[in-house]
């Protein structure tokens, strides 16, 4: 009897030691365990990163956070920013894959609402970044306060345009929440100060913006200001203005940035551009998704802010980093299983 008791004690001790070994060693040999299995699908408005550096920057933020928080991220989106049906299809597909969370930049303010409701019904956490939807189905919204950004556009313009002069507003995709909010911010700021023309939509296409601007400049001799609500539009308008030689008369204010826009700012063709913080939007999108997966309660809205950039302040250290993002450290993409 006593022998058996001794045997049991020894066996229990050995088992406990083995368990301890696994506990300590397991972490090292088998990775951090279940944490690694968090899967997030991030859906952008477009994956044309070369054409829209903004989204390349969002992607960098997403991948950076994916690495920091050990999340497997799949990056998706339509080729064209205006392909709303394409994005709806992508979201639908993503939902069927039952990820741990979805991060979405909605291509349309209204058309994605039913789908977002369905995502919520299936208890998949939803984080909206950059562009939002016309419902409260998103658990968290992260992005630039677009109305505030629009007001900054107006505030920049009135430094160059006298009261009552003629100003055009050039938007991009009609249903996009950011387009709507930027425009209303700018219009609200400007409505009692200048005369505003009807909005034109470039569909985020540089060529189309260029053509619209060429026509606009040719047909509106008294035009003194143009507000371009995103980067492709600003580039198209900038090219037209550059060619027309009227850059000194017509103040162009843009939104977002690319190398071409920066060059236009340096040369005075674009007077000001209001830039966002796309890296932060992407990074926070993943971080909040993780919080939702972990059952925490992040804030409902995070304003990542925007900055008015012009020729005078563009080479200040903090602005340089916004305009010329330094690529993140190399080994990001393969480890996270992303397929941009």
């Amino acid at each position: 009897m006593k022998n058996r008791a001794l045997l049991i004690v020894v066996a229990a001790a050995v088992l406990a030691a083995a368990a301890l070994t696994l506990l300590y060693r397991g972490n090292r040999f088998f990775g951090p365990g279940p944490e690694a299995t968090r899967r997030v699908i991030a859906i952008f408005k477009t994956v044309d990163y070369a054409g829209t550096p903004f989204w390349a920057n969002v992607r960098d933020g997403v991948l950076s956070a994916a690495r920091d928080f050990n999340i497997e991220v799949s990056l998706r989106g339509p080729e064209q920013e205006s392909d709303i049906a394409g994005q709806i299809e992508i979201v639908h597909q993503a939902m069927e894959e039952k990820p741990d969370a979805i991060v979405l930049a909605a291509a349309d303010f209204n058309l994605l609402v039913p789908l977002a409701r369905e995502v919520r019904r299936r208890h998949i956490p939803l984080v909206c970044i950059d562009s939002f939807i016309n419902s409260d189905d998103a658990d968290v919204r992260i992005g630039t306060d677009s109305y505030e950004g629009g007001q900054k556009l107006g505030a920049a313009l009135v430094r160059y345009v006298k009261a009552g002069e003629l100003v055009a507003v050039m938007s991009y995709v009609k249903g996009s929440s950011t387009a709507i909010d930027r425009e209303s911010g700018a219009r609200d700021f400007l409505k009692n100060r200048v005369r505003l023309l009807d909005t034109l939509y470039s569909q985020s296409d540089v060529e189309q913006a260029y053509k619209q601007a060429v026509t606009l400049i040719r047909l509106t001799p008294h035009l003194r200001g143009i507000i371009a609500l995103n980067d492709p539009t600003a580039r198209g308008v900038g090219r037209a203005l550059n060619e027309s030689g009227k850059a000194a008369e017509i103040a162009l204010i843009g939104f977002d940035n690319s190398i071409e826009v920066v060059n236009f700012v340096e040369r005075g063709i674009i007077r000001d551009t209001v830039v966002q913080k796309p890296f932060n939007i992407g990074y926070l999108g993943i971080e909040m998704a993780r919080q939702l997966i972990d059952g925490k309660k992040p804030p409902r809205f995070i304003n990542t802010g925007s900055v008015d950039i012009n020729r005078e302040n563009m080479y200040q250290p903090e602005n340089q980093k916004l305009l010329f993002p330094v690529a993140p450290a190399a080994p990001v993409t393969p480890a996270t299983g992303a397929h941009p």
Partner: peptide, 16 residues
């Protein structure tokens, strides 16, 4: 006080 190099420069500038 300027950061010459930081592996997470973007996060520092974004106050993250």
């Amino acid at each position: 006080g300027d950061i010459v190099y930081h592996p997470r420069q973007q996060l520092i500038y974004g106050n993250l």
